[in-house]
Nucleic acid binder design. Sequence first.
DNA 1: CGACGACCCGTTTTT
DNA 2: CGGGTCGTCG
Length: 761
Amino acid sequence: MQNLLHNLNPEQLAAVTLPAQNALILAGAGSGKTRVLTTRIAWLIQTQQVSPAGILAVTFTNKAAKEMLARLSAMLPINTRGMWIGTFHGLCNRLLRAHYRDAGLPQTFQILDSADQLSAIKRLLKSLNVDDEKYPPRNLMYFINNAKEEGLRAHEVEAYDDFNRRFVELYQAYDDQCQREGVVDFAELLLRCYELLSRNQPLREHYQGRFRHILVDEFQDTNNLQYKWLKLLAGDHNAVFAVGDDDQSIYAFRGANVGNMSAFEREFRVQNLIKLEQNYRSHGHILDSANTLIANNRNRLGKNLRTDAGHGEQVRVYEATSDLQEAQWIIEESKSLISEGWSRSEIAILYRSNAQSRVIEHALFTAGIPYRVYGGQRFFERAEIKHAIAYLQLMDNPHNDSAFLRVVNFPARGIGARSLEQLQDAARQHGLSLYAAVPHVAGKAGTSLGAFVKLVEAMRFETQNLPLQEMVKVMLEMSGLIPHYQTEKEGADRIENLEQLVSAAMLFVSEEGFGIDTPAFLGPKTQAVAGAPLLVSEDGTEVLDADAPLPAVMSPLSAFLSHASLEAGDNQAQAGQDALQLMTVHSAKGLEFEAVFITGLEEGLFPHENSAKEEGGLEEERRLMYVAITRARKRLYLSFSQTRMLHGQTRYNMKSRFFDELPEESLKWLSPKVQQHNWFGSPRKSAWDDAPESGANTIAQSFARKDLGWRIGESVSHQRFGEGVIVNIEGSGANCRAQINFGKHGMKLLDLNVAKLERVG
DNA sequence: CGACGACCCGTTTTT
DNA sequence: CGGGTCGTCG
């Protein structure tokens, strides 16, 4: 125990050793949040306040769950298998698998990822002859997911007008389709589980009685349904230990509700609120910048990070003339960091939106510096993998129409649109799945469709007693996927990926205990079963507690398919090599680097222009900036550019308002703030007017002399609107007007003969 | 049935 | 500008 607790600071120690009551831990960036969470669990177990089976720890990402498990295994000598540590979705999946009957699901229900969900919706709209111009599939998807995340079924959603009523009807139709096909989307996983526990009292009481300690990571990211789910499981007697940081709430756009933190404090009658404000990551100037910036937000729970690390270096600020030149500067700066001995993987280049990476990538590529971009396509999202998964899905549950349609004619077997139309008609007529409707189709179409059904049956029969990885191998051959890609000239990469799928299956079997004879499987898991009470299902049959070994609850194939949907796999293409790290600010959350570049700090980009329209949008952008700043340990660079190529045209942006919210004494302006003169003799606040970059040339060309001596790209000041940049000038003489970007005051069209503008510089 | 061209649109993302 | 989708040809 001494070991566990030593080296904790007083606040951390207080949090770890709190009594078994609800608690809210406000954990600032770099304050040792994960450490507190895992040490808390270890301490509870080691002091025998709870058995491993009494722990429920919830995270948002698989990565976080894995890390927690890994740290725990290092801390505790015991087997961690009895503990429930996972994502909201993973845990709900597990509960639904164990209690599929009570949840009203088929045993082999399958999980739709977002892409699957969207195509299911498109298919629905088509089958109902709905105009997808008027009801865009994407909007319907948002509508459905939002409703589900509020815990609302179609019949509970208020239809306030005809348009909205149609959405509600389509929501109902979508749920019916999913039920018919035996599939659930991500939000459904949570909602179905919530409904299961709220309707089924014995089940609810069983799990409430079991999970005496519920621990939640990244609490600020919970949505309303997750909050309700936690409240339900907590009941009146369990202790919820919620860890989060309201200042790092950056996912409101996908349903996260920061308000859950104060709601939690109130509704769970939190007596124990502990702030972790000691930062172990960043040097002083960096931390001061973060603190000063975030102090501009209202509605905070309130927190100020401190460090013992000393001031360190100032934050370096750079003004570029063009996005190209900004990229070049980043490369030069990185090069000198690297030559000073900084490791490439400890340097991160962050941007607000993915589109910004292009220029930087290009410059890095030209300079021959290895880099890695996060956020691309993930393993299980690749087309060939999706095809293979569809075959596996059909083998497990042939009524999955999405899977059926994906591969019924891939590789091509002469089943065209007209055959499928006949089949879909027959299915609708008889209320059957496509698979089941095949016998109702006559003629040539019926024959080829029948052959496909026979193929699926054969794959199922041939593989029924094989280990998972063999099953995948056989499927790849019998389905014709491998032969197909062998004849394709660009198929080599795809075959390689398909082979990786076999490896993934093998790895899954060994890690998840689906290797039937492994000692890990027979050991602690059987004990768990013996100790777990049998539960009586609503239909009177006995079912196992959901911590029965997974093979007792679902087949290896079902489990692997869940895994493929819930954990789409890594999205890092070129792993291994020491490379610069490129990513959006969002994906940088939770990571840290020695040196960080925050790029494109311009009005309209960061803060993003769309954020102005949203309620609380600017505050979320500011939190995003806060997250970005707090990623850096020792060195932080901030950069912006006067011009930027976006959507095929040059934009003239003002520097981000966030610069005005940073402490001046912590900043060091690299590009001198001196007035210089360009070719036209007009001043422009910049040190780079002679930069021979193409971006600068674009400006030069657009500097064709307009009337009254004003120029595109020039910085001006207006009595009411403050500082702005001239974006365009139209007309001439008495009719000369300028379009000016006044940043937070927006774009204005001003008559240059009337407006009182002053040059800035 | 596949290839190619017109056209549209453009934050952030995990499960 | 560039990626993705849709529709029309061969």
